Amino acid sequence: MKNALLSLERWTTACAMAGACAMLALAALLGMFQILMRFVLEQPAEWTEVLIRFSLIWMVFLAIPMAFRQGAMVSVDVLHRWSPPRIRRLLEYLVCTASLLLMAVLMYWGWDYAQRGSVQTMAGLESVSMFWAYVAVPVGALFSVPGILGNLLDPQRNELETAQ
């Protein structure tokens, strides 16, 4: 069971990171296109501003699962270092429970907000619904759940080694 969950976590986190990287690349390409259009061709493309903003939002929410998996979110480093091993494990369960509760709230209210925003359109892209921007919140939260559980089952604590 543990190996199956960790395998699922590796796959979902890799997919989320690939999506986050694609959104960062899209934002960079759109930024270059915007500069080319505005300053070289003197024909500004206003729609690129909106797409850059939303691709960066998607990038953040798709990168969060990796941060959870690496143990870099909801950090309790000082308590973890100074606590005896039995208390450390209790802290890990507490952090996991709080993180899962937060993801449940983000999934529920994020989906509700995305549905309510589906009647709005993006400024500059009147034919595209705001649903596609808002749905990044519940999608990122959904992808975060395996990362949180994976960190509980196989803690990595990579932020402790690189912290200054």
Rank of each mutant, 00 (worst) to 15 (best):
M1V: 14
K2A: 00
K2I: 09
K2L: 00
N3T: 14
A4I: 10
A4R: 10
E9M: 05
T12G: 03
M17P: 00
A20T: 09
A20F: 02
A20C: 02
C21H: 13
A25V: 10
A27N: 01
L29M: 11
L30C: 14
M32Q: 12
I35L: 08
L36D: 13
L36Y: 13
L36A: 12
L36P: 06
M37W: 06
M37Q: 08
F39I: 10
E42S: 13
P44L: 04
P44M: 05
W47N: 08
W47P: 00
T48M: 09
E49W: 12
V50P: 06
V50E: 15
L51Q: 13
I52Q: 09
F54D: 07
L56Q: 04
W58I: 03
V60L: 15
V60S: 08
F61N: 05
I64V: 11
I64L: 03
I64F: 08
F68W: 08
F68Q: 02
G71H: 02
G71F: 01
G71N: 01
V76M: 15
D77S: 13
L79H: 12
H80Y: 13
S83H: 04
P84I: 04
R86N: 12
L91D: 01
L94C: 14
A98I: 10
A98L: 14
L100W: 07
L100C: 04
L101Y: 11
L106W: 09
W109F: 15
G110L: 06
W111Y: 14
D112P: 11
Q115T: 07
Q115P: 03
R116L: 15
Q120T: 15
Q120R: 08
T121G: 04
T121A: 06
G124N: 06
S129V: 05
W132V: 03
A133S: 09
Y134G: 04
Y134E: 00
V135A: 03
V135T: 07
V135Q: 05
V137L: 08
P138Y: 09
P138Q: 07
V139R: 01
G140N: 06
G140S: 07
A141C: 13
L142A: 15
L142H: 11
V145C: 05
V145G: 11
P146L: 05
I148Q: 02
G150N: 03
N151T: 03
L152C: 02
L152P: 00
L153K: 06
D154W: 15
Q156W: 10
E159P: 14
A163F: 11
Q164C: 14
